[in-house]
Every structure is written in structure tokens, then in C-alpha cells.
Design a binder for these strands. Structure first.
Lengths: 186, 186
DNA sequence: GTTGCCATGTAAACTGTTACATGATTTC
DNA sequence: GAAATCATGTAACAGTTTACATGGCAAC
């Protein structure tokens, strides 16, 4: 059985990891934004839930307290917990930093809830290292190409670089948070 | 005839707007990264080019200088120029800022090449206004929810906010560039 | 003469979008 | 009893990914 999932699938697993919910609850979370750029359309969420159920990662049960509307409450199956943790734990690759920043941030958002502070700190260290390696190559690309680029192209590229720099700074201050918390616990 | 296009389609139009190229050239540009997060897979690019051609936005001609390999060189048709400019010119909406930042930056990167400095400056003003309106609502969401969130969740959200703030700052300094250039020209 | 890159494309599977459909239950 | 909202889903379509297929040319 294939246990590959789209990003939406993992987002659903992550939310269900917190506590069981219905498809409608999940839609509301996506609709009220602030949480990534996921669609709240039923045509995305219900099929995704169905796939997760077929894979045995979640299970849905119809709640039927007499007076309530029909509502399927989904919760993580043990297999789902394993798959979710494995996803969160994946090493941070250069490729992720370049093409899947959104996925990385989603994984991080779910990290200490599912795997604890140590894994969160580890993630940040890897993330920092990859960023620190990648940023200079972007800068070099900019330097060698400025002359050939229109102003807006140059500015757009600089915007990308500044974004990565902001994230590097963020990773460092965040790491400091975890270090402080660790020291307080000792 | 429908003139709707995916983001990849517009990226292709933008590159072909600079100068005619083959599908393979386009793939190499995407592969050598630095340019957005587009896939360089032939299964994405060749069908996209075919769609653009069917819509009459581009035209492909086989180059056949005797000793060369078969190579289809694509160039923009007049209709393609119009469609591309209309895309670049679209107003910047709140929704774009939330869910389609990548598309916005791509549009901006192509702006002054296709529509000139004035449109680029206009874009930046709209972008700045939308960001300035959106950021406070994110901050408020953070403030009201900090207590219920795990540390990593909070940090991830803060990372998002910092990203938007970096872009706001970028928009303002970029606008200053266009203002300066305008003054120099007068 | 075989390895590897140039250059094109196709096919199947999957995911997400848009739009529609349905029915129950509050609320006014 | 009409309107809004809760709650679930389906169908048609478009686009992407992954993997495969093909053939010419260049280098060794």
C-alpha cells in the first residue's frame, strides 16, 4: 500500500493529530486563513479525507447523538500517527528550501506537538544550515546577472534573497528560544 | 476562445516575450533555478506550450539550418503579447497577497520589460497598500491565539508575519528606486 | 560503437478547481 | 415558512508529476 500524500493530506493529518474533527471543521480552519494557503473547497478536502481513510491513516465515525446532524468525526489511526511523524521528521534538504518552503514551515508548525522540542531544534539547525549554504549562491547569481536584467527583474530577485535572509534570521532567533527553554527545564 | 492560463503558461509567455526560444531552452531556464519554483519536466512544459499555441498566443517554427538538430523555436504572437500584458496589469488584490504571492512576484519581475516603469511603480503602490492592510490582521490573529498554540506553531506564524513585513519594506525601498529614476529622467 | 547529452514528445495516475446537488436544522 | 448555515458529497475538467519513448549527434 502506498503511503504517499499530498501536502493537503499531511495538513489534515496534522490537524487531526491535535484532536478529532469533521470535514466541515477542517474546512472552516482553512477558510479562516492564517493557516497556509490551503483551499477550503469541499472538492479538495472530502476526497483527500477519503484517500487517507483508504490508506488506513484515519478513521471516520458518524456521530449520532439523537438530536445532532449527521457528522463524520475523523481521527488518526495508529498507522496515521506513524506516517505523520515520519513526514515531520524528514531531513531538510536543499531542494525543500528552494521549491517547498511552504511544506517545510508546515512541518515545523507541527513539530513540537508531535515530536517535541528536541526535534524542533534539530529541524531549525538543519534549516539554518541549508539556508546559509543556499543564500550565497543566489547572491552570486544576482551579481553576475545584474547587468543583463531589467530593474523589476533585479528587484524581484532581491526580494527573494531578502526573504531567505529573513528566514535565516528567524531560524536563529527561534533556535535561541528552544535553547532557553531547554536550559530552564534542566 | 478561452484565454485562461496557468501560472506556468504566463511564465512561458514572459520568457518568450524577451526573445524566442525552444522548449528545451525554457526547460533549462527552469532547471537552473533562481527563477521561481517551476518544474523543468517535459511533461509540464511541452503540453503547456501546445496549449498556448492552440490558443494562438505563441507560434512554433522548426528551425532547419542543415546541420542543426530539429528544434522548434517559439515566439509570441500578437495575441500573446496582449494576453501577457493584461495579466501583468491585473490589479493587486488582497487574495493574491494571501494565496498567490509567487504569482505577484512573477508579474512584477516581468513588468517594466513589458509595460514600463510607470506600471511597475503602480504595482508596488498597490502591493504596499494591500500588505499594509493585511499584516495587522495577521498580528491580531497571533495575539488572540498565542496562548493556545504550541511554540513551534507560534514561531511558524511569526515567520509568516516577518516574511510579509520584509516584503512591505522591500516594496517601499523599490518604489524609491522608481521615483529616483523618474526624477533623473525629467 | 557505446555512452551521454540534445531535443522532442506521450501516457497514465493523481490532485485540485469549479460548480453543482442534497438534505437537515436553526433563526427570524 | 423562508433564509441562512451546517454538513456532506459528486462530476467534469484542467494541470502536474512521473515515467517512458524516440532519435540525432558528439566525443572518446
Amino acid at each position: 500500500m502506498n503511503t504517499n500524500n499530498s501536502l493537503l493530506g499531511f495538513a489534515l493529518l496534522g490537524l487531526l493529530h491535535q484532536h478529532p474533527m469533521s470535514g466541515y471543521d477542517l474546512r472552516k480552519i482553512f477558510a479562516s486563513s492564517a493557516m497556509g494557503s490551503f483551499s477550503d473547497s469541499p472538492g479538495a478536502i472530502y476526497p483527500a479525507l477519503a484517500r487517507l481513510e483508504v490508506q488506513g491513516l484515519i478513521r471516520g465515525k458518524v456521530e449520532n447523538s439523537a438530536s445532532l446532524r449527521k457528522r463524520r468525526l475523523f481521527k488518526l489511526a495508529p498507522k496515521g500517527v506513524t506516517a505523520f511523524r515520519a513526514w515531520v521528521k524528514r531531513p531538510v534538504r536543499r531542494d525543500d528550501v528552494i521549491r517547498r518552503l511552504g511544506e517545510l514551515m508546515l512541518r515545523f508548525a507541527f513539530t513540537d506537538q508531535s515530536l517535541g522540542d528536541r526535534q524542533a531544534a534539530l529541524f531549525l539547525k538543519q534549516f539554518e544550515a541549508e539556508l546559509a549554504g543556499y543564500i550565497p549562491s543566489l547572491k552570486q547569481y544576482l551579481d553576475t546577472n545584474v547587468s543583463k536584467m531589467p530593474l523589476s527583474g533585479r528587484l524581484a530577485l532581491e526580494c527573494g534573497i531578502q526573504e531567505y535572509e529573513a528566514r535565516l534570521k528567524w531560524a536563529r532567533t527561534s533556535l535561541a528560544f528552544y535553547d532557553r527553554r531547554k536550559r530552564n527545564k534542566l
